[in-house]
C-alpha cells in the first residue's frame, strides 16, 4: 500500500515538474509579434544585400511562375504571419537561399537543372522549412536584455548612432556568411529535405523526383556548379541516404510531376 501511494505521489510530482519545465522553456523562447516584425525588417535588409550581389533574372514569366507556386506553398506549409517573397537570381551555381522574414531566392542554375514542377516544389518547400525554423536569426543569437529578438535585432535596426549601424552591418555580414559560406546546420538541412519530401507526398506528387534532383545536383557539383552548396550543405550523397532511410516505409512514389506546366513556364530564358 505504502509503495503504491509513494508511486502515485512521485508520478504526480513528475508530471507537475514536466509542466513547469515546459512553461519555463516557453517563457524563454516565445516568439511574439514584435519579434516577427524585427525578423521581417532584418530579412528585408539582408535580401537587399543579396540583391546587391546577385541580379534578378529578367524572365518575367519564370519569376511569376516561381512566385505563384511559392505563394501557394507558403499558404500550405509556411508561417501565416509572414509575406513570402520569391525570386530567381542569375547564377549558374546550383542553390537556393532562405532569408529571415520569408525572402527566398533560387538560382537560375538550379532551375535549369530541374526537370519538372515537383522538383521545383521540393526545393521551394525546403527553403520555406528554413524560414519556418527561423534558421538564420536563431543562429545569429541576437537577443535583447529580455531574451527577445525584438529587443535585440530591433535595437540594431532602429539604432540611430554610428555604433548601432556598425553592429547592424556586422549582423548582416554574419547572416550573409551563414547563407553563402558557413551554412546553417547540417542537421537542419537534412530536416528541410525531409519536409520537402513530406510536402510532395502530401500533395500526391512524385517525391522521388526530389531525390533525383539531388542526384543530378551531385553530378553538377562534380562539374563545378556547386561552389556554395558544397560549403553550406551536407554532402549530397548523405542527403540522399538520409531521405532514402525516411521513405523506406512509404508507399510507392506517385507518378505525377506536373511536367506539362513546368515545360511551359519553367524554362530559363
Amino acid at each position: 500500500m505504502k509503495w503504491l501511494l509513494l508511486l502515485l505521489m512521485m508520478s504526480q510530482a513528475f508530471a507537475s515538474h514536466q509542466q513547469y519545465r515546459k512553461r519555463i522553456s516557453q517563457m524563454k523562447v516565445e516568439y511574439d509579434e514584435a519579434d516577427v516584425l524585427a525578423e521581417i525588417k532584418f530579412g528585408r535588409e539582408l535580401a537587399a544585400k543579396i540583391l546587391g550581389k546577385y541580379q534578378l533574372l529578367s524572365d518575367q514569366k519564370l519569376q511569376q511562375y516561381v512566385s505563384t507556386l511559392g505563394a501557394g506553398l507558403a499558404q500550405m506549409i509556411g508561417r501565416p504571419e509572414l509575406d513570402y517573397h520569391f525570386a530567381v537570381i542569375v547564377d549558374d551555381d546550383i542553390n537556393a537561399y532562405a532569408g529571415p522574414g520569408g525572402y527566398i531566392f533560387i538560382t537560375s542554375g538550379a532551375i535549369a537543372l530541374m526537370k519538372n514542377e515537383a522538383q521545383l516544389i521540393g526545393v521551394l518547400a525546403h527553403e520555406i522549412a528554413h524560414v519556418n525554423k527561423r534558421s538564420v536569426v536563431k543562429k545569429l543569437k541576437i537577443r535583447g536584455d529580455d531574451d527577445s529578438l525584438a529587443a535585440g535585432l530591433g535595437v540594431l535596426i532602429g539604432g540611430a548612432t554610428a555604433s548601432y549601424r556598425k553592429a547592424l552591418e556586422s549582423a548582416l555580414d554574419k547572416a550573409f556568411d551563414l547563407l553563402f559560406e558557413e551554412g546553417i546546420s547540417m542537421k537542419e538541412e537534412l530536416l528541410a529535405d525531409y519536409l520537402a519530401l513530406l510536402t510532395l507526398q502530401a500533395q500526391g506528387l512524385n517525391w522521388q523526383s526530389y531525390i533525383d534532383y539531388l542526384a543530378n545536383m551531385d553530378k553538377a557539383i562534380a562539374k563545378g556548379q556547386g561552389e556554395v552548396v558544397q560549403k553550406t550543405h551536407p554532402p549530397t550523397s548523405e542527403r540522399i541516404d538520409s531521405l532514402n532511410r525516411h521513405v523506406k516505409s512509404w508507399d510507392e512514389s506517385p507518378k505525377e510531376v506536373n511536367q506539362t506546366r513546368f515545360k511551359k513556364y519553367g524554362k530559363v530564358n
Binding site: 525588417k41 535583447g144 536584455d145 529580455d146 525584438a150 529587443a151 530591433g154 535596426i157 532602429g158
Partner: peptide, 18 residues
C-alpha cells in the same frame, strides 16, 4: 509592445524600424 520590452534608450528607434 516592442517599446515595452526594449530598453528605454533604444526602444523608440526599434519601434520605428519594425
Amino acid at each position: 509592445s516592442a517599446r515595452k520590452r526594449a530598453s528605454a534608450l533604444t526602444s523608440a528607434g526599434a519601434a520605428r524600424g519594425l
